[in-house]
Simulated assay, not measured.
Amino acid sequence: MQRLLEVMAALRDPQRGCPWDRQQTYRTILPYTLEEVYEVAEAIEQNDMAALREELGDLLFQIVFYAQMAKEAGEFDFADVAQEIGDKLVQRHPHVFADADIADAEAQTSAWEQHKARERHAKAAAEQRDPSVLDNVPQALPGLMRAMKLQRRAARVGFDWPDVEPVLAKIEEELAEVREVMANGADPDKLAHEVGDLIFACVNLGRHAGVEPETAVRGVNRRFENRFRRVEQLARQQNQTLARLSLEEMETLWDQAKAEEATAREN
Rank of each mutant, 00 (worst) to 15 (best):
E119A: 09
A43S: 12
E180A: 14
R179D: 13
T263H: 14
A155S: 13
R218V: 01
R179L: 10
W20M: 01
W20K: 05
V157C: 11
F200T: 15
K149W: 03
A264F: 09
V90T: 06
E113T: 02
A125D: 15
M49S: 07
Q46T: 08
V220G: 01
N226G: 04
K149E: 09
K170T: 09
N47V: 10
V220R: 07
D160G: 07
P19A: 00
D163V: 11
E6F: 04
H115C: 05
H93T: 06
Q240R: 15
P94D: 00
L60K: 09
A67N: 02
D197M: 03
Q233S: 05
L30K: 08
V37T: 12
Q46K: 15
F159H: 15
V211A: 06
Y32Q: 10
V7G: 00
L11Y: 08
L4H: 13
V7R: 13
A264W: 10
A155R: 10
M69A: 05
V181C: 06
L168G: 10
A100D: 06
C202K: 08
A140R: 14
N47G: 04
D13I: 00
L30S: 12
E42Q: 14
A257Y: 02
W254H: 12
A169W: 11
A51K: 08
E249S: 04
P166N: 14
A154S: 07
V178E: 01
F76T: 00
R207Q: 10
A264C: 05
V220H: 00
H193N: 09
D87R: 10
L52R: 09
G210L: 10
K88F: 11
T252K: 07
A50D: 13
M1Q: 09
W20Y: 12
N204L: 12
D13N: 10
D160A: 15
P188Y: 01
R118N: 14
I102N: 00
R12Q: 07
L34W: 09
F200L: 14
F65V: 08
A209R: 07
Y32W: 10
G210N: 03
N184W: 05
P188T: 00
K71F: 00
G185F: 06
E260T: 03
M49E: 14
L60N: 12
F224H: 10
Q240E: 13
Q114M: 05
R53H: 13
Q24D: 02
Q238C: 11
Q83S: 02
G74I: 07
F159D: 15
A186T: 03
Q23W: 00
A111F: 04
L5V: 09
E36K: 01
G219N: 06
D187W: 05
I63A: 05
Q256P: 06
L247Q: 06
N204R: 11
A264Y: 07
L34T: 13
D87K: 06
E251F: 12
N204Q: 15
A235S: 03
R53E: 09
F61Y: 12
E106F: 04
R227H: 05
L253R: 01
T241L: 08
E106Y: 11
Q24G: 04
T25G: 01
V178N: 00
E173L: 14
T109K: 14
A50P: 03
K149S: 04
E36V: 01
A107N: 08
E84V: 05
E36H: 01
R222W: 06
R156K: 15
A10Q: 13
